[in-house]
Structure formats: C-alpha cells, structure tokens
Design a binder for these strands. Sequence first.
DNA 1: TTAGACTATTTTGCATTCATTTTTTGTCAT
DNA 2: ATGACAAAAAATGAATGCAAAATAGTCTAA
Lengths: 245, 245
Amino acid sequence: MKSTIPDTGVPIAPPAGNGGDRQEASLHDEILLRLRDYVVEGNIPNGARVPERQLCEMLGISRTPLREALKVLAAEGLIELLPNRGARVRQLSQRDLEELFDVMAGLESLAGRLACEAITDEEITAIEQLHYEMYGHYLHRDMHGYFQVNQRIHESIVAAARNETLKTAYGNFAGRIRRVRYSANFARKRQRWAEAMREHEAILDALRRRAGSELSDIMFQHLRNKRTAAIEHLTEPQGDATASP
Amino acid sequence: MKSTIPDTGVPIAPPAGNGGDRQEASLHDEILLRLRDYVVEGNIPNGARVPERQLCEMLGISRTPLREALKVLAAEGLIELLPNRGARVRQLSQRDLEELFDVMAGLESLAGRLACEAITDEEITAIEQLHYEMYGHYLHRDMHGYFQVNQRIHESIVAAARNETLKTAYGNFAGRIRRVRYSANFARKRQRWAEAMREHEAILDALRRRAGSELSDIMFQHLRNKRTAAIEHLTEPQGDATASP
DNA sequence: TTAGACTATTTTGCATTCATTTTTTGTCAT
DNA sequence: ATGACAAAAAATGAATGCAAAATAGTCTAA
C-alpha cells in the first residue's frame, strides 16, 4: 500500500559529523522514568486500574504530563489504555509470556552473536568472574544472589554487543517480563538449575572462542529452557509466597 | 464538539502493521496512526522541525492529543523531542542505521527459527509463489516490484513465527528504517542482487526442511549483507538519481 | 557592513477548564 | 431482600489559558 512513497529528493548522505545533541532532564522524562519504574517494580496489582488523579497527587503534577507518560507506557506494552475507562496494568496471558520470552531469546541470541564480533578479552574475563560468583550462589542455594548475578551476566553480553538500539529494546522487553515473578520455585527444580549452570558454561565457552553462530544457538536454547521453566511455574503455582504486590 | 475531523488529505491508514488484537478506535489512536504514517512515509524532511501548531491545524485537533502522540513517536524512536525546542524527525546516523539493521537481522533471524516450528506446508507454498514472482522481477530488472515482493516474503516469515509481540516489534523497527532510501542503486549492484536471490533460495530450502537453527543463521547473514549494501550506498552516494521516481 | 544587544513574536510545557462518559450511589417497586 | 432505574459523583478525553523559554526581528554601535 504505502510502498509508493513519493520521493522528496532529500539527500540521503548524513551530515557526517552529526555529533548528537544530548539534551535531557525534561520534567516529563522524569515522570516517565518514575512511573515506569513504579509499574515495573510491581507497585500496582496486575490488571488493576491506574487512577490518574491519585498518581497526579503522588507525583505532584497535573494530569497533562501524566497522561503523556501513560500513553508512552501503553506504547511500551506495560499498561493498556481502555477508551474512556482509564489505564490498567497490562495483564499478561500465558501466551503473552511465551511470546515475550521468545523475543527475549531472539534478542539475547543476537546479542551473543554480535558480542563475539566485538568483545574484548577483559570483558570476557569480567564475565568469567561473574560466572564463578554465580556458581558460588548456586552451590549455596542462594537463589536471590544467583538471579542477580545471572542478570548481570546477560546484561554484560548485551553490552558487549555494542548496539545501543538492541540494548534499549532489550531493556524494554525485560521490563515487561520483570513484573512477573517466576523465579520462585526455581530453587526446587534443582535439575533445571544445574542445567542452567551447564548452559552458562557453554555460553562462556562459545564466547571465548568467539563462535558467534554457535553462541547464538546456545543463547536461544538457554532462554527457551528458561521460558519452559517459567511457564511451568506459572501453570502449577502451588504454594509459595513470591506473589508480592 | 470537535469530533468531526476535517479531512486533511492524509490517508487514514487501516490498522496497518500494528499487531492489532485489541478493540480501539479512540480518537487519540487515530491521530497516532496518522502521524506515524505521515512521518514514516517521509513527508517531513530529515531532521526538520515539526511545529505543533501546524500539525494541529493539519489534523484538526488541539495540541493536547497531538503532544501525546508525539511523545509516543519519540518513544518509538521516529522523532526526537528537544526540551523547549520542539520535535524533530530523527536524523539517523550511519551508526544508527547499522544498529537498526542488526536488530532487524536479529528479529528476522528469530522469526526464521520460530517459523520452522510452526509453519504449514501451505504457507511455504505461498512463500514459494512469492519467491518465483520475485525472481521474475529480478529477471526483468524491475527493482520496485522486486522490493515489494521481497518485503512480502519477509513479512510472511515473520507471520509464520506466530508471535504477535515479535511482529509488532518488527514493524516498529522496519518503520524506523523505512524513512531511509537505500535501495536506489541496488539495481546497479547486479552482483549483490544475484547474491540476494541465492540467499533467498537458501532461505526457502532451510524453511522447507524446517531447519530452524540453520535458517536463523542464513537470515542473519542475509540481513547483514543487506546492511552492508545499504551502508555502502549511503557512504558513496555519488550522483545518481535516487530522487527520480 | 557587520556584530551585538535588546525587544517583540512565536512556541513550548504544564495547569486548568469543559463536555461527555462511566461508575457509583440512592431510591423505589416487586 | 433483590433488582431496576435514576440521579449524583467521579473520571476521562480534549480544548484552552498562561508563564517561561526560544526564535525572529530590529536597532545601535564599532
């Protein structure tokens, strides 16, 4: 349909040294960040209404900038805006989660591939450090510490990909998933946990060899397995207390 | 009541690429769609200011809903909002383009992998049809037709991935790139063109065999090569009629 | 003539206001 | 007591108003 785009004749060559203007610190962005964190951190129950008035008071602003922020959050997929019925925290169906995990898998897969092109020995060493640290948590059954370091490892790989666009998108999708507490009974699934450790070793190995294509595969599978474990947890969530509002 | 929007001549796009699954028809969403298309179609020169007032008149609305839409477009990366200095169509540096292409490569790579898990024989047949159609365009040196069909092939693969989240993200990034005219002298690079055809054959082959991991690799490489060709074009734009049609 | 400074106009950011729509509340009849 | 209906209250979507900032424009001085 829109393939017939009238050519405007605007020259394509970029004005070379466009050393991007870095302005920031607008009040509106401040609101956006705070609100996004507020939602991602899970301060609002799943599917609950997000009353504008209340948030306005909480943030000490009028409705206009708040509503702008809400539109953005809706575009990001964190909340949904029902016409005339206000904003609700987006309720993720199981299918939504599966899709999100798969997209994350794709992004991490890409990150691994790109990382192999540009990662330095020092960065690999740093990741190895994290890996051993994580192994320690694993041995001590310290799930919280484990997940924390695990996340840092994945973020390090994304960072090594040298792609800000990817990094941003990754952060966005990660935020969407973060609302969901799925790590809870990971501790009980010792088998999956051990498997994850082995996968991480394979990741490190491929990273050391800069085997991009291979790492890409491994990362995808790793995330796929994570997805399976997470969904399993959700479908049989018998008794444990991480569903913290 | 300002509910009647004067038609400005800007075509209201159908629920385009947006992974539409929700009920909407809010006036604001309408504005968002129109404005997004307006920008993606390249109606505003690169880096040019986008005066609110003017757009308001063009769309026949007040500034409030327009500004909301602008915030969203900024979040999508199509425009940038300079504090107190209004909105500009985002100027993509060469690095930005490289990053975007790589992210697209990652998404298509993922799409290929997922497609292999779920694609039906009928869908493959349809893609084969498109492939032959595209081959015809190739033989006739019909670049426009070629690109059109090429895009439909890629979209078909994304659709076959059965992942609305991926589809939406894909559409988003595709929109960002679409502003850039890079296809122009592709016709002259006969070598690259032929190469692209071969890659597409490899894609089809892997798809038929449902070789997900393999297809993932091929798709990434295919997009990587596309990126190289595109960037090459941008860096050496020595006089050719990119603005001809 | 040009550079600089000062003023006027425009533009932006946010608050406030207004008209609907939705939701709640209150009353009444069955 | 329960359900239905109506009115009140609240919330939402959009327009307008206003102060601050930026841009354009003009005038002066070197």
